Simulated scan of single mutants.
Amino acid sequence: MRTPHQIVADHYAASDRQDLEAMFADIADDVQWTEMAGFPCAGTHVGPAQVIEKVFKVLGAEWEGYRFVLERLVDGGDTVVGIGDYHGRNRATGKTMHARVTHVWQVQGGKVRRFEQFTDTLLVARAMQ
């Protein structure tokens, strides 16, 4: 069985390839995916369908070249922390954004059960204004 660290690393690798199916291969059917208040996709989204619709499709529609660049992955057993940077250009304003970000993943039984994002939402908001 793959470790939580490997599951999250595989998710990020799939994201780099823009492989949505592989990104969600290890996401629980009842995952609680929380985007920080003040972020364009703020709130807790439950289940892969909501996450895809309310997070990934929104980011794809509002941002050109939106990406997360992983700097390091911290192995805390069932809790894995991804630290890195967001980058993108807002389609409506043409402004670029670069913001530091931390993702906290909770993995149990080989599935991602919880995800929580922490980022500087002011930098994102400025690019949207």
Rank of each mutant, 00 (worst) to 15 (best):
T34C: 01
K54S: 07
R114F: 00
L73R: 02
E35T: 12
F39W: 12
K54I: 05
M36Q: 03
Q106K: 08
T79F: 13
E53W: 04
G47Y: 01
L73S: 03
A99Y: 04
V80Y: 05
W63Q: 02
T34S: 00
W33K: 00
Y86H: 06
G47S: 07
G94K: 04
G110Q: 14
Q117A: 00
V80P: 05
I52T: 06
H103R: 00
T93V: 08
Q108C: 15
G77E: 10
G88F: 07
Q106L: 11
Y86L: 04
V81A: 15
G76I: 07
G38V: 05
Y66K: 07
Y66S: 10
G76F: 10
V81M: 14
V58D: 10
G88S: 09
A61T: 08
G84F: 12
A42V: 06
G47P: 06
G38H: 01
R72Y: 07
R67I: 10
A49Y: 04
R89F: 14
P48N: 06
G76R: 05
W105Y: 05
V81F: 13
V69G: 04
A99E: 08
T44Q: 02
T34D: 02
V58A: 10
T93C: 10
R89C: 13
A99W: 07
L73I: 02
K111P: 05
V69W: 03
L73A: 02
K54F: 07
V74E: 13
E71I: 04
E35D: 13
V101R: 02
R89A: 15
D78W: 04
G110K: 11
K54A: 03
T79A: 10
E71L: 09
F68P: 10
D78N: 09
R91H: 09
V107K: 09
G43Q: 12
V112S: 08
E116R: 00
K57N: 15
V104P: 03
Y66N: 13
G76L: 13
K95M: 14
V55M: 01
V51P: 06
I83E: 15
W33I: 01
V51S: 03
H103W: 02
P48C: 08
R89P: 13
V101F: 06
E71P: 05
V107G: 09
V112N: 12
G43V: 09
R67F: 11
M36E: 06
G94R: 05
F115M: 01
H45I: 10
Q106D: 13
L59T: 03
G94F: 11
G109C: 09
K57V: 11
G88Y: 11
E64T: 03
H98V: 10
E64C: 01
V81T: 12
I52G: 06
P48Y: 08
Q117D: 00
K54R: 12
H45W: 15
R114Y: 02
I52V: 08
A49G: 02
G109F: 06
R113H: 10
V80N: 05
Y66M: 12
V55H: 01
I52D: 09
